[in-house]
Amino acid sequence: MIKAVDITHKYNNDLALNRVNLEIKKGEFVSIIGESGSGKSTLLSILSTLLKPSEGDVIFNDTNYKEIENIDTFRQTNIGFIFQFHYLINYLNVKDNLKIANEKVSEEEINTLLEKLDIQELVNKYPSEISGGQRQRVAIARAMMNKPTVIFADEPTGNLDSKNSLKVFELFKKLSNEGTIIIVATHDLKLAALADTIYEVKDGQL
């Protein structure tokens, strides 16, 4: 469970978020919509520990982010990220890209995960050898490597066609049904509608 309590964030003197409160339950699929500059990326950054809010608290399964001693370990264990750009490392093949997130993972676990995402045949391919949709699926696989409690996705379909975009959202739905919290920031209202809950951020407020 993730709970944001009175989150306010300022960049210098510019207010990006103003007293935001929200609560996301286990296995919930949440879409955050809003125009560019509305504050949705700031909210995503704060909820995912990448940014400390100017004021307010974020509580993750009874743990306040402020009390976490090793944020890197916390992030590696509990959080998965998917970005608009896949950010796969070009000189590593799919298997090695996945191992970036968890170098101790076995070949079997990698194969199981790739099978689940229907991209098992890509295991030894390099990012330059696969399509945009496939790259984003590999990025999703990388986000899932540590079996995170929550996956944050920032405009994950920004570079995909509608067919591949739908596939990605269907995958998110499947993952949330399995108990993973999915929080997606998107511009696409049709895709956002596939989520259990939709939040709109406008002028820094939810």
């Binding site: 890197d72 370990t73 590696q76 264990t77 959080i79 970005f83 950010y87 970036i100 997130a101 540590n146």
Partner: peptide, 14 residues
Amino acid sequence: KSEFGIKRALGISM
């Protein structure tokens, strides 16, 4: 930089 950025996001320590 994107390589290191993604590593940091994935929790790889500095």
